[in-house]
Amino acid sequence: MLPGTVPILSRYQVISLALAGMLFVYLLAGLWAYRKRPVLCLVFVPLTPVAVLVHSIGALWGLIRPVETVEVTEKVTPETIENVHESLDEGDLSAHDRAERLLQESDTQFQVAGFDD
């Protein structure tokens, strides 16, 4: 828009900054709740605006050209997961309260590798 054509431009700037701030508040809340790999926070925080932009472009593309077919992945049963991981006993997944990672060996342990699970 041309300068001077938007009424009360300063209000739009304040609203834009507030929305951008909320974006990072939600990001930080998600990182705190997930707590899986703290090292990746250094990558996720600066890439948040890029992710939002790409997501918005994808949503717009979905409006312009909606999908016609949907494919789903095959689900794995909890019993199969418990059989694969030796550290899990039968019923561990159903009894898990989801407060922390189930397979994490200690509260201070984290993985440096990016997306290996």
Rank of each mutant, 00 (worst) to 15 (best):
R65H: 13
P3V: 03
G114I: 07
E68T: 05
T69K: 03
G62D: 06
D116A: 07
F44C: 10
I81P: 01
S56P: 03
A20H: 05
E74C: 06
I57T: 11
M22A: 11
Q109E: 13
Q111R: 10
G91C: 02
L103D: 06
W61E: 12
L42V: 08
L19F: 15
I15S: 09
E79F: 01
E105Y: 00
R37N: 12
V6S: 12
A20R: 04
T69W: 02
G30W: 09
T48N: 05
V112M: 11
A18D: 08
G21A: 10
W32N: 13
L60D: 04
L28Y: 09
L63E: 05
Q109L: 10
W61I: 10
R101P: 02
R11Q: 11
V45W: 01
I57S: 04
T5Y: 09
E79S: 07
T73M: 11
S10G: 04
L31W: 04
M22W: 15
V39W: 12
L31V: 06
A99L: 01
R65D: 05
E86I: 00
E105H: 08
R35G: 14
R101H: 14
E100C: 01
E86Q: 06
L27P: 01
E82F: 02
V84C: 01
V50Q: 07
G91S: 02
A18H: 05
Y12H: 15
Y26P: 00
F44D: 14
L93V: 03
P7N: 11
E79N: 00
D116V: 09
R98A: 02
S16K: 13
H55D: 15
L88S: 02
G58W: 06
G114F: 12
V54D: 04
L60I: 12
A33M: 10
A99I: 00
Q109D: 10
H55Y: 14
V6D: 07
Q111S: 10
P78L: 07
G62L: 09
T80K: 12
V84R: 05
V43A: 11
D97P: 01
L102Y: 03
T108E: 07
A95L: 05
R11F: 15
L19Q: 15
R37I: 03
V112L: 09
N83K: 09
V67R: 13
P49E: 01
D116K: 05
E100I: 01
T77G: 00
H96L: 02
V72E: 06
V52L: 08
V84A: 06
Y26T: 14
Y34V: 09
A51L: 11
D107V: 04
G30I: 06
L60H: 07
V50I: 11
